[in-house]
Design a protein around this nucleic acid. Structure first.
Length: 189
DNA sequence: TTATCGATGGTA
DNA sequence: ACCATCGATAAA
């Protein structure tokens, strides 16, 4: 079943772990691409210095909160896709979590190819996964649940034992001070 | 095997 | 100037 919006309105660390083993599905051009989620990262609220929603002193009060044109989706309703361009050439896929006005999201870093992909296509990194699923900013802000979602996440009944979930610091956030070593990256196998 | 580095463009 | 990345290349 397609995960409902209520799934995403929980604590971000919980959502990030509960997404492991679920299935990312994208309908495009009459076919559906599917991958099983193997790796996620949690970005938790306005105080998380690794998050786009936390930025240094900026001019406007809104910007000081981290709310900018790019990041405002993170401050919105849970269960919507937040997609941004990184390093000028790759996209990263996140799903917004928790409450409206509370900036938090889960970055989907890797999936295992299940359907609609050639076997040689790599999906084991946030940029590679977006390339394989043809994800770009046209999906930014679109819903991850509901009947009109073009991309969503399904529960197919796979249970992940909590002891199988590995934790590690998040990738590429050395600038994040005390938050750089938080074990908010989750993966299986 | 690990380490380093360039590509590339939006963001602030 | 800085990056929530990747792939090529070099060193070991």
């Amino acid at each position: 079943m397609k995960l409902p919006q209520s799934f995403y309105s929980q604590d971000t660390l919980k959502v990030a772990q509960n997404l492991l083993g679920k299935f990312l599905a994208r309908k495009i051009g009459g076919k559906t691409i599917v991958g099983q989620i193997t790796e996620t990262e949690a970005y938790c609220g306005p105080n998380d210095l690794a998050s786009h929603a936390s930025r240094g002193p900026l001019r406007s009060r809104e910007a000081r909160r981290g709310k900018t044109p790019r990041t405002e989706l993170m401050f919105g309703q849970p269960g919507f896709w937040y997609i941004y361009l990184i390093y000028g050439m790759y996209y990263c896929l996140n799903v917004v979590t928790e409450k409206n006005e509370y900036p938090a999201a889960v970055l989907i870093r890797g999936v295992k190819p299940i359907a609609g992909l050639k076997p040689e296509v790599k999906t084991d990194g946030p940029g590679k996964l977006c390339r394989a699923f043809k994800i770009d900013k046209t999906l930014n802000g679109s819903p991850a649940s509901g009947p009109k979602a073009e991309m969503w996440i399904e529960d197919r009944g796979v249970k992940i034992n909590p002891s199988q979930i590995k934790k590690a610091p998040r990738v590429g956030v050395d600038y994040a001070g005390a938050y750089k070593s938080r074990p908010w990256r989750f993966f299986i196998q």
